[in-house]
Design a protein around this nucleic acid. Structure first.
Lengths: 200, 200, 200, 200
DNA sequence: GATGAATGAGTGTTCATTCAT
DNA sequence: GATGAATGAACACTCATTCAT
């Protein structure tokens, strides 16, 4: 299996993961059947199983992708030397989440919810979630440290704890967007700005 | 067959929901089988189906219970006339979440995650989630309005938007507690205090 | 699951094993599908799996039964105190084999062949075969020892070695009966008598 | 495309049969997959199917080879004019069986067992088995006839019946060797000698 | 001729639900 | 009412075989 095949394999895997993501976004991990994924992928059962050993392996690939979505954004955000206001970072993240969620090939945030639920009792997914979210939260800690350096955040607080809260606002945004449908980067940012400017 | 039977019915239903909650907390909605629930409940299959029409109905009952957990707390919190600091409310909520999660008959926060995931593609659960979380967020809005009255929160912001953020911190706390295991009411509150006291 | 059920369970298991034996005698272990066995048994898939955990477990039950068939006969043969001629024992065994093979609910000797083949690479069946055939061969050793006591067999030979040969004639009889179809207890006994009476 | 190709074809076929024999000896006819055989043979799927029309055809080739193993020996045995003691013939056969079984490219006796089981419900294999074993048993009949001529075997018995028994001892030896592991040409011959010298 | 990726019918097994006792 | 044995549609997955390159 030489040169051409390596790309081909990857393309096929993406094709399958894409189809699976679409199915899972719509029906969830457990009600999305392999028959669905196979049909959606346009391949045959045998072909799909040639690229993934099991449904669990496909689920892991989807979860990995869904939980990585926000992470990539931070490479752009953190690469500047200018001061980063916490509110600005949060806003960019929220807008990115919405953009990504509205793609036509399946709402990754819906898949993210599936991954959270699955991680609770599926060790393989738990590991992926732990890895991805540890990295993501580290980015928030970096943002917090910069804010402390800029003097916009008290320096007597552990930046990791601030990162917990900043990161912690994300799931709630995603959840409200999917379940209640009445949050947007604008409303959420407005609320956040008020809190950051409060003097409690 | 009046009162006694009605009580009996309710007791049986609670017995079943309790067993199901335990199973679901451990294995998730879909890997928790009816056989598991039946065994755990100590009843027979026929008996269980006498109290619930289907697994979906049991799932709905569990989801209802799991998503109501925090709500009850607010009746106590809001019943005072004294000023309510946002930080204090948040802290009490987080501590309540941890207390409730550590009960011996199954971690309801784990079930909550299941409910989030299920709500995405199960209309019955979506309705329950919408109802419960609308109420819960209303409590946060009340808190925000009080803070505006107290002058600890800018009054030119829509309290609903603040409620979105305050409520929105909860899922992230629960998620980090379950997946990463390194958050606590103390660390989260410390991070939140720093943000509330920031001057971004 | 009280008193009635124990018998019932056993009856059902026999019903399933009977059906499976019939299917396996006709198509072999691997081409006999569970669908075949289920249809033949008159039960549903779920019912069959309530009594046996897997196809392998059913195969083990069949193999056990098929490999035990000759064994039972020896209890009758050995219970007498009269002298047992080797030829007479062999003849009774062969006749028993034929009788058993011609039962209408499936030729157990065909299943026996399946079990031999399976034992080679299936440890569970290997264990069963080892156990059953160790017992069976022990009976032949007993017969040999009696023949030595009677003076019809040289006493300077290890009766276990004689048992190897006596037992060893059985598979060849079964095989020729099934594959070539031209052996019978009469012809085989005639050949054996000649050998026993030879002076090589 | 004359001679060279013909040789080539034969060599390739042997290569495939060798690989298949190895796989089947280890896993049996049905659990040895074509993928196994293809990998083991070092050829491609397409190539293998260029030399054999189907798995069944490969199985037939293996069965043919496995069931022929003992047969070849007799050409040597019968080519002498000297008296042939039955015991001596048997011993040479048993020793040959052991030698052949211990070859490093797969125990043919294990494959023989598979062939027996398969012959029961696979007409193609049944035909092969019938042919091979008819020939083999004929050799035993020849031996029996010679023993009658030598006066070491009663002449009033049908030599075919003696052949049934002599041939019939072989499967039992193979079976005990594979399943119980405690027989050898020595022990088996010792037992046989005792029986031949008995006066039942 | 050779390749090996693709095929898809068929397999063993599970599990929410029912209903005769 | 209560029981739990029975149901059977649905599921994830395999593997002998083909055929475009």
């Amino acid at each position: 299996m030489p040169k051409v095949t390596a790309e081909h394999r990857l393309a096929r895997r993406e094709q399958i993961v894409g189809a699976a993501l679409h199915c899972v976004a719509e029906h969830g991990f457990h009600k999305a059947t392999m028959a669905d994924v196979i049909r959606e992928s346009g391949l045959s059962a045998g072909a799909v199983y040639g690229y993934f050993k099991s449904k669990d392996e496909i689920i892991a690939a989807i979860a990995d992708q869904a939980l990585s979505t926000v992470d990539e954004l931070f490479e752009g955000i953190l690469s500047t030397d200018e001061p980063l206001s916490l509110a600005a970072v949060m806003r960019r993240v929220l807008e990115h989440v919405v953009t990504v969620a509205e793609r036509h090939d399946g709402d990754v945030t819906r898949v993210g919810l599936q991954a959270w639920a699955e991680a609770v009792h599926n060790p393989a997914i738990a590991t992926i979630a732990r890895e991805k979210y540890t990295i993501l939260r580290t980015h928030y800690a970096t943002v917090a440290r910069r804010a402390q350096a800029d003097g916009t955040l008290p320096s007597d607080v552990d930046p990791e704890h601030v990162a917990q809260v900043l990161f912690g606002m994300l799931p709630g945004f995603i959840l409200q967007r999917l379940l209640l449908g009445d949050v947007s980067p604008q409303t959420y940012s407005a609320g956040l700005d008020a809190l950051l400017g409060s003097n409690s």
